[in-house]
């Protein structure tokens, strides 16, 4: 067993986990933060994307033990003081989803993308979302939402 202490959505959390526990499972099963979805479980779909020390990572491909001491942000921690993050607001406004399963990961990746590229080009958006799969929308509204999120963020 591994003893870990990490910050999740601004709160310090300590737990004892099996060494092989994945960060995604730790968030969902131990902390009950089920907004982080596990889609493919093979590091491809990006539904499990969270931020670790400010960078987007696939939490199904990281051990909870590797996140010891890290600062983790999940979809539950993205809104601040009841105000949606620009990416969340834009996904709602642009209807950038159908079933919604990929949405937490899409939004977390978008939030990270906007930190690196506050005014992303179409190319930067498409390549920036390469690690996230959506099987419903065909991506058009998702791309629109990322552009809208950039506008909202700039305001």
């Amino acid at each position: 067993m591994a003893k870990i202490t990490l910050t999740v959505n601004g709160e310090k959390r300590s737990a004892e986990v099996e060494d092989r526990t994945l960060l995604a499972n730790f968030l969902r099963d131990t902390l009950n933060l089920t907004g982080t979805h596990v889609g493919c479980d093979t590091s491809q779909c990006g539904a499990c994307t969270v931020h670790v020390d400010g960078r987007a990572v696939k939490s199904c491909t990281m051990l909870a033990a590797q996140a010891d001491g890290a600062d983790v942000l999940t979809i539950e921690g993205l809104a601040k003081n009841g105000k949606l993050h620009p990416a969340q607001a834009a996904f709602t406004e642009c209807h950038a989803l159908q079933c919604g399963f990929c949405t937490p990961g899409m939004i977390m990746t978008t939030a990270a993308l906007l930190k690196d590229h506050p005014q992303p080009t179409d190319d930067e958006i498409v390549h920036g979302l390469e690690g996230n799969l959506c099987r419903c929308t065909g991506y058009l509204n998702i791309i629109k939402a990322v552009k809208r999120a950039a506008e909202l963020q700039g305001k």
Binding site: S43, G46, T49, V52, R55, A56, V57, K58, T61, M62, T109, A112, L113, H127, G128, E130, G131, N132
Partner: peptide, 9 residues
Amino acid sequence: VADPQVRNR
């Protein structure tokens, strides 16, 4: 290489 999340790790 792969995608942004993979390049971050």
